[in-house]
Design a protein around this nucleic acid. Structure first.
Length: 563
RNA sequence: GCCCGAGUGGGGUAGCUUGGACAUCCUAGAAGCCUGCGGAGCUUCAGACCUGGGUUCGAAUCCCAGCUCGGGCGCCA
């Protein structure tokens, strides 16, 4: 059974259209409908393309097509200039939509399980420092997309690829061994100092890195332990705070230890697609559109030890063994690396390559974020700030609530404001972080949507029982019909977001739904409505509440019942 | 230098894949609404497709060039 109320209406329009086209002697393959402007119906069929073969003006063709027959689902078919516009029957649409929402409850928008396995990798920041807002875009985009995929019917595993093999992990370990900070290690290693200590430490670091890459299990265990500690201290807490913790942490070292990095390297060497420079294995990416000072994608060093790309390839081979679709959320600095992995996977005969969603970095008004220059906003600080601000607002608005309840509300509002503010923008757009925008609680913001939900809850609480029988044809006000159409659009939106990897559309949908609900609320009194209108409106409020709840869930925003 | 993205009202942003009907919405600004279900609300006004070519009956959308901003161009990750 489908959960999308619009399907029967769209296919009815397609049938009508196919018949009309048949009468004009036109082969109807795929019928592509457009969205007409507000107030001009539900589906539009543009006639420009037919103009040439029929040797008539598109407006005239539209006239002829509009004379087509009707079905119960289609209330009107009208020519409007070069378009044929279809309008769905309000009563049937309202009935089908409310039934679909009320039957599915807060799971409305979900599709039946398809059994398709999706492995979505997100965040994967090196275990060194806290996440700053720039990188913080990653878990929020990734987690939202994962939720949309689950709703679209996929089985999803979200993974954090934990780099415990690189120089940064090694520096952490070295610092730990000497009882010093990471900054101490970074300072010694990165500076060009020639003093004996720096030279010695660089040698030690080199020994750690290469030892691990050769598969020294005791050393790897040490690295894993330190990385785990760093994750627990710096990164996992904020991921939990924003409800974006991945299902699984996957250690890079795993692929060295189990030999799959070695197999990947051997396979690539055998593929004949690689070059060698002084013993170092590489793939030339020049034929694949990568260009610059060098286009070499190095897999190993001259001494045979593996480099990050080789381990990344091994990880992706493993991924392909356990999913039907792999999705990576990556910063735009990984574009070339990602291209290299894709080329390598193909060279190994892998048919699946990951779908990659790149996001641009968030900068500050003063410029690029840089921890070293002290010019950085950390994600956990931002969330704390948002919670504090929300606390003040709640104290002002709801002084009668107990302190604990107010704190819970403030947390839900603060986290939501941050998540929403980040996910609402298309990932590939650059963002300049501004406190006043991130902490905006009005207009296009999470609290606005949460408020609409709380308002719906409040109406329902006052109403008492919601009658199970209601007459959908009583919902005829312009705002009621607009709200019904918005509700109806949700399941297909979920499918689109999951397919096209467009989580930002979920944010704008939730906002539009809340807006439509507010306008309905203004124009259509519910509790004081006369006779049967009250019951019908209550059903619409209930459906709105459930759909808002579902839309907020996919954004990982807590649907507060009061605030 | 070469390669990859992005440029939409004062600020931000949707639409771009698949070219079409008055370019979406938020914010800041101006003016209003409220003895009604929670004002984190609602209404009205004003304001934008980087520039120049091209393709087309038609371009924010496709193509080319330029400019601006991000990113990449390590035997780092």
């Amino acid at each position: 059974m489908t959960h999308d109320p619009l399907i029967q209406f769209r296919s009815a329009a397609e049938r009508v259209m196919a018949q009309a086209l048949g009468k004009l002697g036109v082969e109807s393959g795929q019928i592509a409908f457009d969205d007409p402007p507000e107030g001009m119906g539900d589906l539009a069929f543009p006639c420009f393309a037919l103009s040439k073969s029929l040797r008539r003006g598109p407006a005239q063709i539209a006239q002829e097509l509009a004379a087509a027959g009707k079905t119960p689902e289609i209330a009107s078919v009208k020519a409007a200039g070069p378009y044929v516009n279809f309008t769905f029957d309000d009563k049937l649409l309202t009935k089908a939509t409310l039934e679909a929402v009320l039957r599915n409850g807060a799971a409305y928008g979900s599709h039946p399980r398809s059994g398709k396995r999706v492995l979505l990798e997100h965040t994967s920041a090196n275990p060194t420092d806290r996440l700053h807002v720039g990188r913080g875009r990653n878990p929020i985009i990734g987690d939202t997309l994962a939720r949309a995929l689950r709703m679209s019917g996929c089985d999803v595993d979200t993974q954090y690829y934990l780099d415990d093999m690189g120089r940064q992990a090694a520096m952490r370990l070295m610092a730990e061994r000497h009882g010093k900070t990471y900054q101490w290690a970074a300072g010694l290693v990165e500076a060009e100092r020639q003093d004996p200590e720096a030279v010695e430490r660089r040698a030690e670091l080199d020994a750690i890195v290469k030892g691990a890459e050769r598969g020294d299990t005791a050393l790897i265990a040490e690295l894993q332990a330190i990385c785990k500690k760093v994750m627990e201290e710096n990164i996992s807490p904020v991921l939990r705070l924003i409800s974006a913790e991945p299902d699984t942490y996957v250690s890079e070292s795993k692929f060295v230890v189990d030999g799959s990095v070695g197999r990947a390297v051997d396979g690539l060497r055998a593929s004949g697609k690689c070059g060698e420079d002084d013993g170092a294995l590489f793939i030339d990416l020049a034929p694949f559109g990568v260009s610059g000072r060098t286009s070499r994608f190095f897999l190993t060093r001259g001494d045979g030890t593996s480099l990050y790309p080789a381990r990344d390839v091994a990880y992706h081979v493993w991924k392909n063994g356990q999913c039907d679709r792999a999705i990576n959320i990556l910063g735009e600095d990984h574009k070339t690396e990602s291209r290299g992995v894709e080329v390598a996977l193909r060279a190994l005969g892998q048919e699946n390559v990951p779908d990659v969603l790149f996001y641009s970095f968030v900068s500050l008004p003063e410029g690029k974020m840089s921890a070293r220059k002290g010019r950085v906003v950390y994600l956990d600080d931002l969330v704390e700030e948002a919670i504090d601000l929300a606390k003040e607002e709640v104290a002002k608005r709801r002084p009668e609530l107990g302190e604990e309840r107010r704190a819970d509300i403030a947390k839900a509002v603060g986290v939501a404001a941050v998540r929403y503010n980040i996910v609402r923008t298309q990932p590939e757009k650059q963002m300049v972080f501004k406190w006043e925008e991130a902490l905006n609680f009005e207009g296009n913001s999470a609290p606005f949507i949460q408020y609409a939900h709380a308002r719906a809850c409040s109406i329902l609480a006052k109403a008492g029982n919601i009658p199970s029988n209601y007459n959908p044809s009583l919902l005829a006000h312009e705002m009621e019909l607009r709200l019904v159409r918005r509700l109806a659009a949700f399941p297909s939106l979920i499918a689109k977001c999951a397919r096209d990897m467009t989580p930002h559309l979920l944010a704008s949908y939730a906002f539009l739904l809340a807006s439509d609900f507010n306008q309905f609320y203004r124009d259509c009194p519910v509790l004081v409505a006369e006779g049967d209108a009250r019951g019908a409106r209550l059903a619409l409020v209930q459906a709105s509440r459930l759909a808002l709840r579902s839309a907020l869930n996919v954004l990982a925003i807590e649907p507060l019942e009061e605030m």
